[in-house]
């Protein structure tokens, strides 16, 4: 097993309205193929940590290394390209582009990467949609889908470039029980196929189904344990 993510002594401060340390000396590693969940109470800094890992937030101390690349001090264009190639996101509020069809939403990051011609990106997007059971909605505008459907499409979008890691910020936080189970099911299938997944959640059931749980409190990791 190889290490795909390494965070070392990460500190993060908020300066407004007054200086406040959100993350305190966070150090952990993620192995390839691992399904990791980060849990903790609201305000413990778990989402902040995820956005640092996502490379979108660059204001921190310490070192983050992903897929063998050090991410500290890189410029925005490099990071954008890195995200495009190595990361897939699933957010709490599904965040599809409402004017585009389901298929286009999934295709966009793939077209941006430009690794495959458009036709092939489309085939791959359809394949991902089939994987999550949304193929029949491919031509619908994203705004016409239900919340749960949108979240599944967001997962397909995260998968389009075969990312090194998929990151989820409360991926089931806004869904009802049936949809939560559905989404969790999809995550689990992906993890079984060897996809590395990091999800922030406060749903104990969701966390219980993952390979490893990191528990945070007041900006520090307080416990870490593997699920059987």
């Amino acid at each position: 097993m190889s290490t795909v993510l390494k965070a070392q002594h990460v500190n993060k401060y908020f300066y407004d309205p007054e200086t406040f340390q959100v993350l305190k000396d966070i150090t952990f590693e993620v192995q390839k193929g691992e399904f990791l969940s980060i849990v903790g109470k609201s305000g413990c800094g778990k989402s902040t940590l995820l956005y640092l890992l996502s490379t979108m937030d660059t204001d921190y101390e310490g070192a983050i290394e992903m897929a063998g690349v050090t991410l500290k001090g890189r410029n925005q264009d490099f990071l954008a390209h890195f995200r495009n190639e190595h990361l897939g996101f699933v957010f709490q509020f599904h965040f599809l582009l409402p004017e585009f069809t389901t298929l286009q939403n999934v295709m966009l990051p793939g077209l941006k990467l430009g690794k495959y011609p458009e036709k092939e990106v489309e085939d791959r997007a359809m394949e991902k949609l089939r994987l999550i059971g949304m193929a029949e909605h491919a031509r619908k505008p994203a705004s016409k889908l239900s919340g749960g459907q949108q979240q599944r499409v967001a997962i397909a979008r995260a998968l389009i470039n075969d990312p090194t890691i998929i990151m989820g910020d409360e991926p089931t936080g806004n869904l009802d029980k049936a949809n939560t189970e559905n989404v969790f099911e999809i995550f689990h299938e992906l993890a079984d196929k060897g996809q590395t997944i990091i999800a922030v959640t406060h749903d104990p059931d969701f966390a219980a189904g993952t390979d490893r749980i990191i528990e945070m409190s007041d900006g520090s990791i307080i416990s870490e344990h593997k699920n059987p």
């Binding site: 264009d77 990361l87 957010f91 941006k112």
Partner: peptide
């Protein structure tokens, strides 16, 4: 929101 999502999925400032 769309701009944020595009940036998150790897579109850079020039795009």
């Amino acid at each position: 929101k769309d701009i944020a999502i595009l940036k998150a999925t790897g579109f850079d400032g020039k795009d």
